[in-house]
């Protein structure tokens, strides 16, 4: 028996979400007294997994195939899941993790739980807490299936260190006969993505126009944050669609979410509810966001934000 975790990376470097998944998997392995098996792709140095609890690391070299090939990744992971007789398989909630999860579950004959926000409350039967209704509620879900695949929500568990001496192995990159091929990828590599960011700075219609977005960008830069926006802002073409967060946009589960000139409509909040600390800057004290936020400033963004940027620069 074992726990298998799929560890995501970018350009050969393990992502934060990967370490969180490893930490979560380790906690399950500890409770169930089983081994933690990590599966990585194209990582040169997997030693960081030794400090996050892996007992074995299978690194798979995808050679000429430099893109995320969902079918081949899935087949390769299923091979290890079967070989190691895994009862629990954990993936992240990234775009790739949520793509892989349900496919992996069917192919590994497992039950699938997405949006998992905590450790299982029971293993017999497997019971976990998940968020639902776009973060407006949670549920406890149960499966009697012998194997489960869990997609762990970002920042739900955190990163926990535990020293282990992982055995380093090479896994097979399994062929697939699917007609699906990734032909190219278009990705900004110089910017922090909303999915990976610890801090997200978001602007709404209160910023009046795209020409004022330097406020958001400058604040994001001093904080090392990703930038985001409300739906009307992307609909108006002030910002790209990829920055739109909320119920119909991207989910945000950062440690800190700063909303500037965003009213806090229920559909916006639905997407950012799982962020840990929320700050609102809005000129209208009645804006609904103040009910959802932890900290707030009632004030004009055009006055408050430049001061904030200056003060943050000064303490760096």
């Amino acid at each position: 028996m074992s726990v298998v975790v799929y560890i995501e990376s970018q350009n050969g470097i393990i992502k934060k979400a990967g370490l969180e998944v490893a930490s979560y998997g380790r906690a399950i392995a500890n409770s169930t007294k089983t081994a933690l098996i990590a599966v990585t792709f194209n990582i040169e140095d997997t030693s960081i997994l030794n400090s996050h609890g892996a007992d074995k690391v299978y690194n798979i070299n995808t050679a000429e195939d430099s893109f995320f090939n969902v079918d081949r990744y899935c087949a390769s992971i299923v091979g290890i899941v079967e070989q190691e007789n895994a009862k629990v398989v954990v993936v992240s909630a990234s775009a790739d993790g949520r793509y892989l999860g349900p496919i992996l579950a069917v192919r590994a004959q497992a039950a699938y739980f997405s949006n998992v926000v905590a450790l299982p409350s029971s293993y017999e039967p497997f019971t976990v807490k998940r968020s639902c209704y776009t973060n407006k509620a949670f549920n406890e879900s149960v499966s009697e299936q012998g194997r489960v695949v869990v997609s762990l929500s970002s920042n739900a568990f955190g990163i926990v260190e535990q020293e282990t001496a992982a055995e380093q192995l090479t896994g097979d990159y399994i062929e697939s006969n699917s007609s699906l091929k990734v032909t190219s990828i278009d990705k900004a590599t110089d910017k922090i993505t909303i999915a990976d960011a610890d801090i997200v700075v978001s602007g709404g219609r209160g910023l009046k126009g795209p020409e004022n977005w330097h406020l958001i960008e400058d604040l994001a830069e001093v904080l090392g944050a990703a930038t985001a926006c409300s739906k009307p802002v992307s609909d108006l073409g002030w910002r790209p669609h990829s920055e739109h967060v909320g119920q119909t946009g991207k989910p945000v589960a950062s440690n800190l979410y700063i909303a500037i000139g965003v009213s806090g409509a229920i559909q916006h909040l639905a997407g950012i509810n799982s962020s840990k600390v929320k700050v609102v800057i809005n000129s209208d004290p009645e804006a609904p966001f103040f009910k959802a936020a932890d900290y707030g400033i009632v004030g004009d963004a055009f006055e408050v934000v430049p001061q904030l940027i200056e003060k943050l620069k000064a303490i760096q």
Partner: peptide, 9 residues
């Protein structure tokens, strides 16, 4: 995808 898009066939 996170931070961009991917083309597939």
């Amino acid at each position: 995808i996170d931070g961009g898009k991917e083309s597939l066939s």
